[in-house]
Design a protein around this nucleic acid. Structure first.
Lengths: 202, 202
DNA sequence: CCTACCGATCGGTAGG
DNA sequence: CCTACCGATCGGTAGG
């Protein structure tokens, strides 16, 4: 299946429906109806319903990965890496920007990847873990450098990343907060969380 | 439908399956098969598949609400409320404890409430918002008292609460971290996040 | 992209 | 809790 405009449109429509009703709760005919064509006609463009989910999830995985790459590249200098604080902030901002820029696909990526067939699901699970490891590593680096005092980098990374992903549940393009404002707020919240317990005096 | 042991068992089994495959992705026969009875036999105990989801979600909503009530009651003194820091920590710990104590139902509560029929879904949405408001209010109180410097209590509350709910995606009863350890780590992360930007010097 | 159609499965009911 | 069954809908194919 080649990527065509029509195929991309199917992905867009499916993202919205999967987001609202889930993958299993959305029928091929639901997708077709939203495009004013017959259910069977979809199969001129896609191999299967699963194929549509796969395309959405893989596209988003790539977007998140590239956004993280670019964000770090932009702040690391040729001589060495930026500080862990700056790097965690960059990763956070990049993640929020992708979510707010493509809310439909991002929601499917976050919530519906479990509906992938076993092989793909396993591969995507590894890919997600590799992505999360970037957060873990940056936090662990910050602990080593003394910038962060977090007791457990893995737990902190999971806490932060799921908070960022939770954005898909409450972000509204017409809501009170602009994407840029959310990116700033979340960057501060994430960095603050990572700083840890030492200065808290409890 | 009265609450019987068998009915409770259906809820348990359904929670596990809904957690793994989602509400729409789980058939009535899947639930029955896991109990070694026929699909139709389930209807001697429940009115409908939706009825099972409703029971799970409402039970968990009550548990989260009561846990928050009890947690605050335990630290507020008769003369006045505890500090916002202590109250936020108490709410966080209570939430984590409920999630780790009933992971199956908690996951369904977090992920599958969208599959409730419109009326129930709307009421549950309000109930969830009321619960989230407790976090918002405590954070706003902390900003007023000067303990927290968070710029936006609503965003901070959403960040923290979705991070806590994200626990359903990665907590494993046989995992590295005990519930009590997670509760401590998450309490610190949440309180730290709320402290805000002022001391960060960026 | 359509019409016509397939077997399988869905949630649920009747009647015991 | 079972057998037998219902109409509706599912993902997908054939053939144009």
């Amino acid at each position: 299946m080649v990527e065509t405009a029509r195929r991309r449109e199917i992905e867009d429509v499916a993202s919205t429906l999967f987001r609202e009703r889930g993958y299993a709760g959305t029928s091929v005919r639901d997708i077709a109806r939203a495009m004013d064509i017959q259910g069977a006609s979809l199969y001129a463009h896609v191999a299967s319903k699963q194929d549509v989910l796969r395309a959405i999830v893989e596209r988003m995985a790539s977007r998140f990965e590239h956004a993280a790459d670019d964000a770090l590249k932009a702040i690391d200098s040729p001589d060495g890496e930026a500080t862990p604080t700056a790097r965690l902030a960059a990763l956070t901002r990049a993640h929020v920007e992708v979510v707010t820029d493509d809310l439909g696909r991002a929601t499917v990526f976050v919530h519906e990847w479990r509906s992938l067939e076993p092989d793909l699901r396993a591969r995507m699970s590894k890919r997600r873990d590799t992505y999360e490891r970037r957060f873990r590593t940056v936090i662990a680096d910050g602990v080593d450098s003394g910038e962060f005092a977090t007791v457990d980098p893995a737990a902190a990374a999971a806490f932060i990343l799921t908070a960022l992903n939770g954005l898909v549940a409450w972000y509204r393009p017409d809501g009170r907060l602009e994407p840029a404002a959310i990116a700033e707020l979340f960057t501060d919240l994430a960095v603050r969380a990572a700083v840890g317990t030492d200065e808290l005096g409890r």
